[in-house]
């Protein structure tokens, strides 16, 4: 199987900050709006280098989304920056009306997504954001798997015209992809070939999918691993091909089972090519305070959970 050496361990939000600093230099239309979380979103460099294009909005997320829509109408490319929960649930209708329905060119950039935000606990752990955003017509939803992919995706959405939700996180994370100046929104990446089962993973679960594939490989099974960094528009072809060629699918995400990647994939395979499907996700519950790895284990998102789900999917093949 292809080996992915870990370049370093790095939070995805750091790469977001680096990409914003680069975009500040290369694209004069890029502006940033931040809701009192400059340090958390790593925007110090952008704000220092471009004080005229960095707007401190304060803790006023609803106002931030509306203001971003106005800036987009005025010809700018606004990037909004706060935690995932306050980027989505807090401001759902502002996004729905002023961004998605009005098709304004706003980039909603959301850090500290999911359980791995850690000790702050459930109030801050966005587990419904992918569902909320993918429900909106016209919204593009991107969840990069590591720091380098976050960098690539951030650069790509600046070039792309239309509303985007970009989801990343707080903890250190194995950084194993190459920076890709040609990042294709909507195009899944097959990271590992395999015939017995496919794990379709997004965000930080992609690395765990590779770990699970390695464990299963040692047991004589071959596992296709797909990094589905774009949840919407979904790469239907990659999913249907995987269903046809491997006959069993596991999805993996740091999100609620209801409304997430698993639901999106279930829709595709049940309507186009039904095969056994196992969904690894948070099972209809809120999170809690704890350390990132403790929480992933507690809520069924560990590498071992992926291994078990893969075996179960394979065993359900007719």
């Amino acid at each position: 199987m292809p080996i992915y050496p870990v370049k370093d361990n790095k939070p995805t939000r750091n790469a977001f900050g680096e990409a914003m600093a680069e975009l500040g230099q290369s694209n004069p239309d890029v502006v940033v709006l931040c809701a009192d979380l400059k340090g958390s979103l790593k925007l110090e460099k952008f704000s220092e280098n471009h004080p005229d294009r960095y707007f401190s909005i304060g803790i006023a997320e609803a106002d931030m989304i509306g203001t971003a829509a106005g800036l987009a109408i005025g010809g700018k490319i606004p990037f909004t920056a706060t935690f995932a929960e306050f980027s989505t649930g807090r401001v759902y209708d502002q996004i729905r009306q002023s961004v998605a329905y009005s098709n304004t060119n706003v980039k909603i950039c959301a850090s500290h997504a999911g359980l791995t935000l850690g000790e702050d606990g459930a109030t801050h752990q966005a587990l419904e954001d992918i569902g909320l955003m993918r429900a909106l017509p016209g919204m593009t939803v991107i969840v990069p798997c590591d720091a380098n992919e976050t960098y690539s995706a951030t650069m790509a959405i600046a070039k792309f015209k239309g509303p985007v939700y970009l989801r990343f996180g707080r903890p250190n994370q194995p950084n194993f992809t190459e920076i890709n100046p040609d990042f294709q929104i909507g195009k899944a990446n097959v990271l590992n070939p395999g015939k017995d089962v496919t794990i379709i993973a997004t965000g930080i679960l992609v690395w765990k999918a590779l770990e699970a594939a390695e464990i299963l490989q040692a047991e004589g099974l071959t596992v296709r691993v797909i990094n589905i960094h774009t949840i919407k528009p979904l790469d239907v072809e990659a999913i249907v091909t995987a269903a046809k060629e491997t006959g069993a699918i596991v999805t993996a995400e740091e999100h609620q089972k209801n409304t997430g990647l698993g639901d999106a994939v279930a829709h595709v395979i049940s309507t186009q090519f039904p095969v056994p499907l196992e969904i690894v996700a948070v099972n209809d519950t809120f999170g809690e305070s704890g350390l990132p790895d403790e929480l992933l284990t507690q809520y069924g998102l560990s590498t071992q959970d992926l291994v078990k789900a893969a075996k179960k999917a394979i065993s359900r093949k007719k």
């Binding site: 109030t123 801050h124 305070s289």
Partner: peptide, 24 residues
Amino acid sequence: IHSRLQGHPATKEGLPGIRVASGS
């Protein structure tokens, strides 16, 4: 992990004295 003293006040774990979650 497993504490009633969540990072932000919560009712789910049943800590006496708290009547509504806050943090957002």
